[in-house]
Amino acid sequence: MRQSTTTIGSSQVNILKYSQYFLNEDLKVAKTATTLNANGILPAGTIIDSTGKVVNDGTAYGIVYEDVNFNNSMGTEVVPVTIFGFVDTSKLPVSPADAAKTALNMIKFL
């Protein structure tokens, strides 16, 4: 297993409203399966499906918990995905659609 440390230029965004009430699951995401920003980063607060594809519909699986840098990736990264908790909607890059909120039934958007 290859592991490296890289500093992402900005500070991490805390998407949670209440930090002690949440559950993350690790999800393997292929670089080719997801949409990255211009810096090669999958930003915190991005809604993804179970394959890592960025969505905002009824196929939503969870919300990316922290920024994940794919720049030095060998193709797949382990992404922490929030599947339960209280999320601050104002911290998300895109407001979740009603279908996504329904699919993410264990996440309360505040």
Rank of each mutant, 00 (worst) to 15 (best):
L23T: 14
A99K: 00
Q20R: 12
T7D: 07
V13T: 15
K91R: 12
K101C: 04
K53I: 05
D98K: 09
K91G: 02
T34Q: 08
V81L: 07
T51H: 09
S50G: 02
F70S: 05
D88K: 14
N69F: 08
P93I: 14
I8H: 10
P43L: 10
V68L: 01
V29I: 14
L36M: 10
P80A: 09
Y21M: 07
N69G: 04
Y21N: 08
T89A: 13
L104G: 03
K101N: 04
N39G: 08
T89E: 12
L27I: 10
S73F: 06
G45M: 09
T46M: 02
Y18T: 13
A44L: 03
T89W: 00
I41K: 13
Q20E: 13
K31S: 12
G40M: 10
G75W: 03
N105H: 13
A38E: 13
V87D: 00
L23D: 12
Q20S: 15
D67W: 05
T59H: 08
N39L: 11
V13Y: 01
D98F: 00
F109K: 02
F22G: 00
Q12M: 13
G40E: 10
N69C: 12
P43I: 08
A60N: 03
V78T: 15
V81M: 06
Q3T: 11
K101A: 05
L104W: 05
D67T: 03
V78Y: 12
L110F: 11
